[in-house]
Design a protein around this nucleic acid. Structure first.
Length: 939
RNA sequence: GCGGGCGUGGCGGAAUGGCAGACGCGCUGGACUUAGGAUCCAGUUCUGGAAACGGAGUGAGGGUUCAAGUCCCUCCGCCCGCACCA
C-alpha cells in the first residue's frame, strides 16, 4: 500500500468511530427520552403545546441466531420517520421491547437443561447490542420484555380483568362479573336453570357464573399428541397426522381447554375496521377471518332428537334431500343404528386419525350413512342423515342440510353416494347453454349444481310457496319468516371466528393467576400477583403412551409439586388449592405491550390513565377516531392473529374503563421483506452465497456452476448477512441508507451486498463536500448560494418533506443525492446549503449528520433542529420550458415566461422553427396547452 | 377454485393521465496511479448513424383520450391471502 488513504476520508473505519461516539453521547444524555404528561417520566412543561406521535414496531422474538439484515428494515423505517417528526416539533415516543416468551427458548432449554430465562436474557442482550449499533432513536428507559416479572404481573392482571368480566349483549359491552352476580342475587336476571340463585349451592352458583365469563373452560376439538404430552397447533401436525417434532401419532379429540370469548366481539371487531387507517388487504383478511354470514338456523326432527343446522340458503330447503353431520358431532352415537354401527365407528375413527391438513388436501368426498332419517320441516319428507368429514365441526353447528341441486359439495356427495338431486330452481337458458346440455329439470343430466337467482319450482307446502319467486333475497326473507312462525327455526348470523383457545401445556409462558378448588377455577386477588413461574430442571411436558388417545395432558408445571399445591386465605380462612398448570400462549404479552412502553415503571397500574389518554386517546378533532398507536409498522404475517387478539383485549379494557382508546393501533403499515439469493450445487447442497460469482449469465462457485434460487435469508441456505457485517464493512449510516433506498418501505426487495457501496459513496461525497479529506478542515464557506443552487435546494427540500411524510424514503434519498451531486460540482459549499443538506440527511443517516453539524460549529444536538422548509418563491421559476408535441410526439421545446396565458404559449409554440418545419404548412386541427406542462398540436 | 396485488433497462427501482427510465448498482471509456477491487470525470433503454438527427419502446392484444407505464376490457406470467365455511 504505497498510496495513503486520506486521513479524513469517510470510510468504514471513520464511520465506525463517529457512530460509536455519538451513540455514547445520545445514551449518556438521554437524547431520545420522551416526556410523559404525568407520572415518574412526567415532564408536563415539555409536553405542553406540542403534538405527539407514538410510533411502534412489532417487537421481535429474541432468537438465538440474532438479527440478519432483513429484520431491521421496519425498525429503520420507523426510526427515520420518528426522527423526521421530532425535527418537525413532535413529541415522539419510540421504544423497543422483546416478545421473549415462546417455544424456541423452551426447546433450547429442553435440549440443554439450561433454564430458558438464561438463554432468553442472553439473546435479549445480543439484540440490544445489534439494535444499538444501528443508531435507533429509542427511549431506552421504556424497553420491556414480556418475560420480565414486572411486565407479566400486568399480563396476569389483565387476564383477571377479562376473567372477571362477562359480555352483556344488550349493551354490546363487557361488564364486571360482580354486576352479573348482583343481577342474579336481586333476581333481575333469571338463572336459567329453574332454581333461584338463593337456592343454588355454591358449586352451582359458581358454575353458572363461570359460564358467563369472557374466559371459560370448554370442551374443544384439539390435536392431542400423547407422545409429546401436549396439544399441538395445526401447523405442528404433519400431513400424515403425526407430530412435526418426534413423529408421534396425533389424535383429534375433544379436551377441556381455556378459551377466550372473542366471538362476543365479532361484530365490533368487524365494524371498527372501518375506523382504522390500515392497508385494505389486512382489513380484508380480518373480515374473512371473522367470516360473518347471514342465514338461518333450521331445526330438523330426528329419532335421536332435534338436529340444528345453519344455512345461508334457507330458500333451498325444499331441495334438501339428505343431511350430513361432522364425524365429531355429538349426535352421532344416537343417530347410528345397530346395522350401521360398525361402519360408522370405522369412519369416525378414520376421520379422527386425519389431521385438518389432510382433510383440506384431499377433497374427495367420503362418508357413511347413520341409518337414521330426519324430517324436512318444509315438506315432512324423511331424508337420510349421513356422516362426512366435508362438514366441519368448527363451523356453524357441525351439521348441514344438503341441497345437491344448489351446492357444489352436496352435488358431488350426492353423485358419489347416489342420493337424489331435486331441482328447486329453473336455471336460465344461458346456464344450460354454457354447460352444453338441454334445458331440463331432470338433474340426472346436470354436470354441476346451479347457484344464482332463478325462478323457484317444486317449492311449496300447504301454507307456503316460493314457486314463481325469482330472487334469492326475497325467497330467503320469506322462508325465514315462515320458519320462525312455525317454530322450525329463524334467521340468524353465523361467524367463522371461533373462541380463542388460550392455554398451552408448556413451561415458558405466563402462569395463569388461577387456582382450583373442588368447584372449579378461582381468580387470585391482585395481592397474589405476580404468580411467578416456578423453577424446574426438566421443561418437557410429561410424555405418555404415544398410542393412548384417551390420556390427559400433564403440563411441565405439574412437576413443581410444591408450587402446585398451595394454601391460601382467599377470604374464608387458609385452605388448600391447586394451581392452574397451563401457561398462556405467546400472544398474551403482545396483546398489550405497547401500552407498557408508555408507563413502564408504574407499580400501581398497567398504565396511568392520563398517560394512556395523552399518547393513545382518540383525537377529538377527528370524528370517529378510535385512538391508538399513531403508526404501527410490522410484517404482514401478523395480519390476523396478533392484530385481532390485541384488538380484542384492548376493547375489553375499554369496556371496563381502563383505556380511553377503542382500538390499539390507529394506523398500520406493513413493511416488505428483505429476501436473498441462495445457491445450490449439482447435488442440491447450498453453497456459501458470498463466495458465488456471476459469470456469463450463470453462477459459479469454486469452479462449478450452481443454481440460484430466491427467498428467505437463513442459516441453512448459507446466505445470511448480518447488520454487524454491514456496520463493520460500511458503517451503520451506510447500511441504514441502503435499506431505505432499495425500494418503498412496503415492498419486498432482494438483498444485494454488492449494491451497498453506492450509499457509502454518497456519504463519502457529502462528507468531502463539507470536510477536507486530507486536513480534516471544514470546507464550508459563508457565501450565499447562487440563484440556481437555491432553486434546486428549495425544490429538493419541498420534495423531501413530501417523501418523508409519505414514508417514501427511497425517493427522499434520491433527492438528497441529487442535491449533493450538484454541490459536488460547486467550487465551494455555501454554509446555508450545507446545513440544510445535513439536516435533511439527519433522519436517514443520523451519526454523520450529527458529526457534520457539530463540525460546522453548531451546538448539540441536531435531533431537535427544525427540519428545513422550502421557500415557495424559489419553487416558481421566471421561465418555464414547454415540450411541444405534434400528435403526441415531442418535436420541439420552447421557453415561456411563467404565468403566460394559453394564447401566448400557443403563439410561441406555433412560431417555433422546428414546429413550423414539422407542420410543413398544415393547419392544426387543435392545439392543447396544459399550463406549466406542455403543448400538444393535433393535425 | 375464490379474493387481492404486481409485470418498466443487465439489476434494485423513479414517473398528481402530460418530456418514460430520477437515484443507486453494474458496465464502458478516461484521469490519478507501480497497481486499482480506492477515488474522481464522462457515457450507458434498444436500434440506425461518426455526429447531427431519426425509428421503436413500460408482459401480449384491444379500447377510452389531444395525450396512457398510469384509466377500461381480454389474455399470459409471477406473488400473496383464503380454501369442503354450508
Amino acid at each position: 500500500m504505497a498510496d495513503e488513504i486520506p486521513r479524513y476520508r469517510y470510510n468504514a473505519e471513520l464511520a465506525g468511530s463517529i457512530e460509536r461516539s455519538w451513540q455514547d453521547r445520545w445514551e449518556a444524555d438521554g437524547t431520545f427520552n420522551s416526556p410523559n404528561p404525568a407520572g415518574p417520566m412526567g415532564e408536563p412543561d415539555k409536553v405542553a403545546g406540542r403534538d405527539k406521535l407514538f410510533i411502534l414496531d412489532m417487537f421481535p422474538y429474541p432468537s438465538g441466531t440474532g438479527l440478519h439484515v432483513g429484520h431491521p428494515l421496519g425498525f429503520i423505517g420507523t426510526d427515520v420517520f420518528g426522527r423526521y417528526k421530532r425535527m418537525s416539533g413532535f413529541n415522539v415516543l419510540h421504544a423497543m421491547g422483546f416478545d421473549s416468551f415462546g417455544l424456541p427458548a423452551e426447546q433450547h432449554a429442553i435440549a440443554t437443561g439450561i433454564h430458558p430465562r438464561i438463554n432468553t436474557e442472553a439473546n435479549v442482550t445480543t439484540y440490544k447490542r445489534q439494535l444499538r449499533q444501528l443508531g435507533l432513536a429509542h427511549d431506552n428507559r421504556r424497553s420491556v420484555a414480556t418475560t420480565d416479572e414486572s411486565f407479566y404481573r400486568w399480563t396476569q392482571w389483565i387476564f383477571l380483568q377479562i376473567f372477571n368480566a362477562w359480555y352483556d349483549p344488550t349493551i354490546a359491552k363487557a361488564r364486571p362479573i360482580k354486576e352479573l352476580i348482583a343481577e342474579f342475587e336481586t333476581g333481575t336476571r333469571a338463572t336459567g336453570g329453574g332454581t333461584d340463585w338463593a337456592n343454588m349451592d355454591e358449586g352451582a352458583q359458581r358454575k353458572l357464573v363461570d359460564s358467563y365469563r369472557l374466559v371459560y373452560a370448554d370442551d374443544m376439538p384439539v390435536n392431542w399428541c400423547p407422545g409429546l404430552g401436549t396439544v399441538l397447533a395445526n401447523e405442528e401436525v404433519t400431513a400424515d397426522g403425526r407430530s412435526d417434532i418426534g413423529n408421534y401419532p396425533v389424535f383429534r379429540r375433544n379436551m377441556t381447554q381455556w378459551v377466550m370469548r372473542i366471538t362476543s366481539y365479532a361484530d365490533r371487531l368487524l365494524d371498527d375496521l372501518e375506523r382504522l387507517d390500515w392497508p385494505e388487504p389486512i382489513k380484508h383478511m380480518q373480515r374473512n377471518w371473522i367470516g360473518k354470514s347471514h342465514g338461518a338456523r333450521v331445526i330438523f326432527r330426528t329419532d335421536a332428537g332435534p338436529l340444528d343446522v345453519f344455512t345461508t340458503r334457507p330458500d333451498t330447503l325444499f331441495g334438501a334431500t339428505f343431511m350430513v353431520v361432522a364425524p365429531e358431532h355429538g349426535l352421532v352415537p344416537a343417530l347410528t343404528t345397530a346395522a350401521q354401527h360398525d361402519a360408522v365407528e370405522a369412519y369416525v375413527a378414520a376421520a379422527a386419525g386425519r389431521s385438518d391438513m389432510q382433510r383440506q388436501e384431499d377433497k374427495s368426498k367420503t362418508g357413511v350413512f347413520t341409518g337414521s332419517h330426519a324430517v324436512n320441516p318444509m315438506n315432512g319428507e324423511l331424508i337420510p342423515v349421513w356422516i362426512a368429514d366435508y362438514v366441519l365441526m368448527g363451523y356453524g353447528t357441525g351439521a348441514i342440510m344438503a341441497v345437491p341441486c344448489g351446492d357444489e359439495r352436496d352435488f358431488e356427495f350426492a353423485r358419489q353416494f347416489e342420493l337424489p338431486i331435486r331441482a328447486i330452481q329453473e336455471p336460465p337458458a344461458s346456464w344450460f347453454d354454457s354447460h352444453g346440455i338441454d334445458e331440463s329439470l331432470d338433474t340426472a343430466g346436470w354436470p354441476r349444481a346451479f347457484i344464482g337467482d332463478a325462478r323457484y319450482v317444486n317449492s311449496a307446502n300447504d301454507s307456503f310457496t316460493l314457486n314463481g319467486v325469482e330472487s334469492i333475497d326475497d325467497a330467503v326473507t320469506s322462508t325465514n319468516a315462515w320458519l320462525e312462525v312455525n317454530g322450525h327455526g329463524h334467521g340468524t348470523i353465523n361467524y367463522r371466528l371461533r373462541d380463542w383457545q388460550f392455554a398451552r401445556q408448556r413451561y415458558w409462558g405466563e402462569p395463569f393467576p388461577i387456582v382450583w378448588d373442588e368447584h372449579g377455577p378461582i381468580a387470585l386477588p391482585d395481592q397474589y400477583l405476580p404468580v411467578l413461574l416456578p423453577d424446574l430442571d426438566d421443561f418437557k411436558p410429561q410424555a405418555l403412551d404415544p398410542n393412548d388417545d384417551q390420556s390427559r395432558p400433564l403440563p411441565p408445571l405439574a412437576r413443581a409439586t410444591n408450587w402446585v399445591e398451595v394454601t391460601l386465605d382467599l377470604g374464608n380462612g387458609p385452605r388448600p388449592y391447586r394451581r392452574e398448570l397451563n401457561v398462556m400462549p405467546q400472544w398474551a404479552g403482545s396483546c398489550w405491550y405497547e401500552m407498557r412502553y408508555l408507563d413502564p415503571t408504574n407499580e400501581n397500574a398497567f398504565i396511568d390513565p392520563a398517560v394512556e389518554a395523552y399518547w393513545m386517546g382518540p383525537d377529538p378533532s377527528r370524528p370517529g377516531d378510535p385512538g391508538g398507536v399513531d403508526l404501527y409498522v410490522g410484517g404482514v404475517e401478523h395480519a390476523v392473529l396478533h392484530l385481532l387478539y390485541a384488538r380484542f383485549w384492548h376493547k375489553v379494557l375499554f369496556d371496563l374503563g381502563h383505556v380511553s382508546s377503542v382500538e390499539p393501533f390507529r394506523r398500520l403499515f406493513n413493511q416488505g421483506y428483505v429476501q436473498a439469493y441462495a445457491y445450490r450445487d449439482d447435488r442440491g447442497q447450498t453453497v456459501p452465497a458470498e463466495e458465488v460469482e456471476a459469470l456469463d449469465g450463470g453462477y459459479v462457485w469454486q469452479g462449478q456452476s450452481v443454481a440460484r434460487e430466491y427467498g428467505k435469508m437463513g442459516k441453512s441456505l448459507k446466505n445470511v448477512v448480518t447488520p454487524d457485517d454491514m456496520c463493520d464493512a460500511y458503517g451503520a449510516d451506510t447500511f441504514r441508507l441502503y435499506e431505505m433506498s432499495t425500494g418503498p418501505l412496503d415492498a419486498s426487495r432482494p438483498w444485494n451486498t454488492r449494491d451497498v457501496i453506492g450509499m457509502q459513496r454518497f456519504l463519502q461525497r457529502l462528507w468531502r463536500n463539507l470536510v477536507d479529506e486530507t486536513t480534516g478542515e471544514l470546507r464550508v464557506v459563508d457565501t450565499e448560494p447562487t440563484y440556481e443552487t437555491d432553486r434546486l435546494l428549495h425544490r429538493i427540500v419541498d420534495g423531501v418533506r413530501t417523501d418523508m411524510d409519505n414514508l417514501r424514503f427511497n425517493t427522499a434519498i434520491a433527492k438528497l443525492i441529487e442535491l449533493n451531486n450538484h454541490v459536488t460540482g460547486l467550487p465551494s459549499t455555501p454554509r446555508r446549503v450545507a446545513e440544510t443538506l445535513v439536516k435533511m440527511t439527519a433522519p436517514l443517516a443520523p451519526h454523520i449528520a450529527e458529526e457534520l453539524w457539530h463540525r460546522m460549529g453548531n451546538p448539540y444536538t441536531l435531533t431537535y433542529e427544525a427540519f428545513p422548509e422550502a421557500d415557495a418563491s424559489f419553487l416558481i421559476d421566471d421561465e418555464v420550458e414547454y415540450p411541444v408535441q405534434i400528435n403526441g410526439k415531442i418535436r420541439a421545446r420552447i421557453t415561456v415566461a411563467t404565468g403566460s396565458d394559453q394564447a401566448t404559449v400557443e403563439a410561441i409554440a406555433m412560431a417555433d422553427d422546428k414546429v413550423v418545419a414539422a407542420l410543413a404548412g398544415v393547419e392544426p386541427k387543435k392545439v392543447i396547452v396544459v399550463p406549466g406542462r406542455m403543448v400538444n398540436i393535433v393535425v
